[in-house]
Design a protein around this nucleic acid. Structure first.
Lengths: 349, 349
DNA sequence: ATGAAAGCGCTAACAA
DNA sequence: TTGTTAGCGCTTTCAT
């Protein structure tokens, strides 16, 4: 499949192997005419440099490893594309692995990446506060940057939004438009320390407004939200008028679940998500959500990591701005005169 | 960051470098007690085999390259996860790159993968019938398998559903439930030869039923579908009663667009997608669609490619089964008595 | 400006 | 069963 090596090119260009290497990689060191001759020979032979050889000798692979929980959530897919683009710009490559939320696999897939001698890692772990992978990486002094995760230890560099404040803003918005009974819906907390931070933010916002935070409604992700879980938010003497969901996929699922129960969104119940996946804007009603700049998170992680590989000063964690997307699934709270659903005409085009 | 090599382990285990290699990779060739000693030494030293060295020597990387258009469409994300899982099972690794639908980048990213000396490639190209990348790969005899793409040349191995027949089935279903005026909505044909095949299938079904196929409505993907495009389907003396979309993301966008125009789905217009992304089942109304087994497509591509790398007989292209998901966005066509929209109560629980 | 030579970490003959 | 040795393809001193 591939046989041409540097020495083949050298033979054809009538120079030494070393000169070919230089002509290709540091043409400034080589006479112009020689460079041309070498390039020509390389082109003639269809020479394709073998990075494995280069990587072994150079003891660096110019490759970054990436560990993400899943690609089914486009938040991570977008992040990866941001990573890919940034690495390409810097002439680096990237190896991606996903854990599909199996925490127990995080270590193994990371080890595999290290066997490939990636120069550094970009990863999202389930729980940065208690993570065998991160402990291992710290101990072995492997350069890495966390994305989405936030960490208390300042030496663990992260790139993320401020999840807690972002959640607080979202819930604060709901409060500011009149909601008083707001519940939070989350996936499995063990899968995501972000969800926990967002729950903190929910509590912050509730307390700041003198409201009583409720326990979160935990629903298994990646499955249609059972009506039972939703019923939990509707019953009691203080039924919710708004739901804050720990991510967009969940929010979308919740909206559907409510509609299925015969409720109107946002008329009967407002829903706000978290992530800002593009998909949210394609839906009707468009999802209200907290937008994270996922591509930038990826891009910024690459920049941060490469700076570190270059030996720059460690640098602080990066907190990127979030924003609120005022979608159509959240509206001002106005108590209904009657308890039975009232039909609402479809709005404007 | 990482310094321990085979010879360090050899020193500590008091055996030769070669024995360490054997003990680790072919323990059957080594005395049990020695294997134990070596393993212990390796563990003590935290030895992590350097695959770069191995790959150079072995002249094979046990790594597959993957080229996909995007991960924003979960069809491809799922496929990748299928690939990843299968490769892991076979003790292979994988390098992923996406083109983000930039056809002109397909060649460059593939070349990069080849510089890394991946053993073979799994890819989806914009158009398999006219693809510089595939020509190059054929010429250089690089083993590869196409996913999603279908190809006329039998020596180009593919793993896919039968797009044309699948589309024909979907449209046939619409016809069977009473629709007569059906239009197809597609993204940019140049981005996807699958969309073209599906259009063929649409025509097949229409003709088979004695109906006149219409030209497709092409809309730029990844953006909310402009109402102008939809209006095209609604006006004229023969307005459509059903829309067949070339993929699910588009279909979701179309449904939203219709709702925004004040129409009901499926009452005023049925919509059917193609892909079968999980998301479709989370929506309300749940998306009617043609389901492709994306994970299996990925897994099967790996199996096919590895078989080929092992030198097995080339083997035929794999056509996996599709299925129809009878969602809630498509319903029996029953002409409306009046032309203005009629409110419909929300259905079942 | 160019060449000779060493060696990155590993595997696989070939010997013993 | 184990050790010795020769590279895989490349970069990089060190000479010239």
């Amino acid at each position: 499949m591939d046989r041409v090596t540097l020495s083949d090119v050298a033979l054809r260009a009538r120079v030494s192997l070393a000169t070919v290497s230089r002509a290709l990689n540091q043409p400034a060191l080589v006479r112009d005419s020689t460079v041309r001759r070498v390039r020509e020979a390389a082109a003639d032979l269809n020479f394709r440099p073998n990075l494995v050889g280069r990587n072994l000798r150079a003891r660096t692979t110019r490759t970054l490893g990436v560990v993400l929980p899943t690609l089914a959530n486009t938040v991570f897919a977008d992040c990866f594309q941001g990573i890919e683009r940034a690495t390409r710009l810097q002439h680096y490559s990237v190896m991606l692995t996903t854990t599909e939320y199996r925490v127990e696999d995080e270590l193994a897939v990371t080890e595999e990446l290290l066997r490939h001698r990636v120069d550094g890692l970009i990863l999202t772990v389930a729980n940065a506060a208690e993570s065998p992978v991160l402990d291992m990486l710290d101990q072995e002094k492997v350069p890495y940057v966390l994305v989405y995760n936030q960490s208390r230890c300042p030496q663990r560099q992260t790139v993320s939004v401020d999840n807690r404040i972002a959640a607080r803003d979202a819930v604060g918005h709901l409060i500011s438009i009149g909601h008083r009974s707001i519940r939070m819906v989350t996936g499995d907390f063990r899968e995501s320390d972000r969800a926990q931070l967002r729950y903190q933010g929910y509590r912050d916002a509730m307390r700041a407004a003198g409201l009583v935070p409720q326990l979160p409604v935990e629903v298994p992700l990646h499955t249609a939200v059972a009506s039972g879980a939703l019923a939990q938010c509707l019953r009691g003497r203080d039924p919710a008028s708004a739901l804050f969901c720990s991510n967009d996929l969940l929010a979308i699922s919740v909206v559907s679940g409510l509609l299925r129960l015969g409720l109107q969104v946002p008329d009967d119940m407002s829903v706000v998500g978290f992530d800002g996946v593009d998909l949210g804007t394609l839906l009707y009603p468009a999802l209200a959500t907290v937008v994270q700049p996922s591509r930038d998170i990826g891009g910024s992680a690459v920049d941060t990591l490469l700076a570190r590989l270059r030996g720059d000063v460690p640098g602080r964690s990066v907190v990127l701005d979030h924003s609120l997307r005022i979608g159509e699934t959240a509206m001002r709270f106005a108590p209904r005169p009657t308890s039975h659903a009232v039909r609402r005409p479809n709005r404007r085009n």
